[in-house]
Simulated assay, not measured.
Amino acid sequence: MSILVNKNTKVLVQGITGKIGRAQTKYMLDAGTNIVAGVTPGKEGTKVYGIPVYDTVKEAKENHDIDASVLFVPASIARECVIEAAKNKIKLITLITEHTPVHDVMEMKSYIDKSDSLLIGPTTPGIISPGECKIGILPTNMFTPGSVGVISRSGTLSYEVSAILSDNNIGQSTVVGMGADLVAGTNLIDILKLFNSDKNTKLVVLIGEVGGSQEEDAAEYIKNEMNKPVVAYIAGGSAPDGKRMGHAGAIVEGGKGSAESKISHLTSSGVKVVSFLFEIPEVVKKLLQ
């Protein structure tokens, strides 16, 4: 069992004919992803690996059942492409694009919040349910099917942690990269709720980082609502106040969003917080016993 995507998910690739879109489409197909169509304005009537390409999302929807869209588009047009997908009632939208202007993200998030769509990203590696479906750029060799859900604010750590789990014979139900920008399409609580209701996810590994209040908010949800164990790791513990550490969202202001604050909130909510990534498998095995 998985959340968000599975072997039956019908996927649209926006930006499919670009260099990155074309390459990642091949990797997704190799992972078993059911890609039914692509969109690149001006390329209608062409095909990529046998997949028909359309000028608009509307035309793609008229010809195919589509559950999810993944976007490999320039930051300058990311807003209009996300809104186009939402207007055409695509339920899951995954925006891989980096460096999307924050005001554009705010606009697309405002639109998404009034729709029935869910936006993952921007600056996300994507989503994978190992052995079933991959949407995005996650390297499939680092994942194995299983019952541990992974949710991460850091793209790199999402698959590094999964690789560590896999090396210790601990499989994953679904791995979700949240996206690392200051404004994100969704939040930790949204994904925790999905894992909480998935009967085959037995435990959740949460990878957070300094900056913002998502982990503190998630701690409150875990304390009051979560019925499954949660293991957490917080990256960026050495980040000084006011210093951006790689990610737009990883900024600590006056102690707010610090690693200490997040660890304190999570620990008081019953979450087992580890100091090092290599500790995660041992803790997970103990909690699953």
Rank of each mutant, 00 (worst) to 15 (best):
K7R: 15
K10G: 00
V11E: 01
Q14K: 05
G15R: 00
I16F: 04
I20N: 01
I20K: 01
G21A: 10
G21T: 02
G21V: 06
G21K: 03
D30F: 04
T33D: 00
A37C: 05
G38H: 02
G38Q: 02
V39M: 08
T40I: 00
G45A: 12
T46S: 15
I51F: 00
Y54S: 02
D55E: 02
H64F: 05
I66W: 00
L71T: 07
V73M: 08
R79L: 09
R79M: 14
V82K: 03
K87Q: 14
K89Q: 13
L92C: 04
I93T: 03
I93Q: 02
L95N: 03
I96P: 04
I96M: 11
I96L: 14
H99E: 12
P101Y: 05
P101I: 00
V102R: 12
H103W: 12
D104Q: 14
V105K: 04
M106F: 08
Y111K: 06
D113E: 15
D113K: 15
K114T: 14
K114G: 11
L118G: 13
L119S: 05
I120C: 13
T124R: 10
T124Q: 13
I128M: 04
S129R: 05
G131Q: 05
G131H: 04
L138A: 06
P139G: 04
T140V: 15
N141K: 12
T144H: 03
P145N: 09
G146R: 03
S147M: 04
S147W: 00
V150S: 07
I151E: 06
I151Q: 11
S154C: 12
D167Y: 08
Q172E: 14
T174P: 05
V176P: 03
G185F: 09
G185W: 09
T186V: 07
L188S: 09
I189F: 13
L192T: 01
N200C: 03
K202M: 00
I207F: 04
I207C: 01
S213R: 12
S213K: 13
E215N: 08
A218E: 03
Y221Q: 13
K223G: 07
K223C: 06
N224A: 05
E225H: 15
K228L: 09
V230S: 13
V231C: 10
Y233S: 02
Y233P: 01
A239Q: 09
G249P: 11
G249H: 10
I251L: 15
I251V: 15
G254F: 03
G255C: 07
G257H: 06
S258Y: 00
E260Y: 01
S261E: 15
I263H: 09
I263A: 09
L266I: 09
V271Y: 06
S275E: 13
F276P: 00
E282F: 09
K286R: 08
